[in-house]
Write a protein that binds this DNA or RNA. Structure first.
Length: 297
DNA sequence: AAGTGAACCTGAAGGC
DNA sequence: TGCCTTCAGGTTCACT
């Protein structure tokens, strides 16, 4: 579900309610998601002030004035929503106890003092592949979920040279390599397909074939790097994609799904005019890949 | 090492 | 209407 652009959109949606706010109450409605909640989660959160809400790869990082950072992952079906006084929020009455309760509300935070005023932040996740983990903020970069992550495709860290180093000698299919969060972080099934379409590169090509013998990037890799950065930037700009149950924190939709060129478009004409090809769906390591076999070589 | 398939879980959609 | 199968944006683990 949420790939980098969706997670970034969630972060921006939560910021007005959370930035500088104090958590006055926290409630987990079950003991675990994909992993058990940190045993002292509610106590660590209650009474703490939010220092920052940032993002690394597909993780949200919620840091408090107690030097705690909570690593939040949305899995496949996770979403956050914000309720305020205008939506009948009553402090101390948790979402799962109110008329606005929804199935699969798993974590509820009452916050005050943010830009949005008193609010309730509710994490909902039907499939429960998401998780909440705890780290001391000073040790965050060494946390197993964070250490080893590859460069972000946003900002200026990603470059053809860095990717060349990560892909050199790899015989794995290019698609699988780009899904590997140690190579580059934040890409998922949709945006890998989209980037490969734009770069006109086959998802089946050997990843190492984009690196010259001397370890420098080929022109194909330079092209791919630009396409990855471009598709991610455009998707963030559009507020991410809204598929199935995914919504922004205010319930509205992202729009990037209207810009998909190949994802979930089997049998459609190839988007790379004037290529006469047709989008095909294949399965690679158990997951759908959409691409045009005619122009993606 | 590389590749595949299964597992974790629920719900939506399509076929019959 | 209802039952059944398949599939889904992620990640990890076991196996060949």
């Amino acid at each position: 579900m949420p790939e980098l652009p969706e997670v970034e959109t969630v972060r921006r949606g939560l910021l007005p309610a959370l930035d500088g706010a104090t958590i006055v109450a926290a409630k987990a409605t079950r003991p675990d998601l994909r992993f058990p909640f940190p045993p002292d989660l509610e106590a660590r959160l209650t009474g703490s002030q939010i220092v920052s809400l940032s993002r690394r790869a597909k993780y949200l990082l919620l840091s408090t004035d107690r030097a705690d950072t909570f690593i939040l992952h949305l899995g496949m079906s996770g979403s956050y929503r914000v309720e305020t006084a205008s939506t009948r929020f009553t402090p101390g009455v948790f979402a799962h106890e109110r008329s606005t309760a929804r199935a699969h509300d798993h974590l509820i935070l009452d916050v005050e003092g943010g830009q949005a005023g008193a609010s309730q932040i509710i994490y909902n996740d039907p499939r429960r592949f998401g998780f909440v983990l705890h780290a001391r903020t000073c040790a965050l970069s060494a946390h197993p979920m964070i250490a080893g992550l590859g460069p972000e495709p946003t900002g200026n860290t990603l470059s053809p040279d860095i990717l060349a180093g990560a892909l050199s000698g790899k015989k794995t299919p290019l698609k699988a390599a780009l899904l590997d969060q140690r190579v580059i972080s934040g890409l998922g099934n949709i945006y890998v397909c989209e980037a490969l379409s734009r770069a006109k590169l086959s998802p089946r090509r050997q990843a190492g074939s984009l690196v010259k013998k001397d370890g420098t990037p080929t022109t194909r890799l330079v092209r791919l790097t630009a396409c990855i950065r471009q598709v991610i930037a455009e998707a963030i700009e559009a507020g991410g994609s809204s598929l199935r149950d995914h919504r922004q924190t205010d319930g509205s939709m992202g729009y990037f799904q209207h810009s998909f060129r190949v994802y979930d478009r089997e049998h459609a004409p190839c988007p790379n005019a004037p290529c006469p090809g047709t989008v095909r769906r294949i399965v690679q390591s158990g997951r759908s890949t959409f691409f045009c076999p005619t122009c993606q070589r």
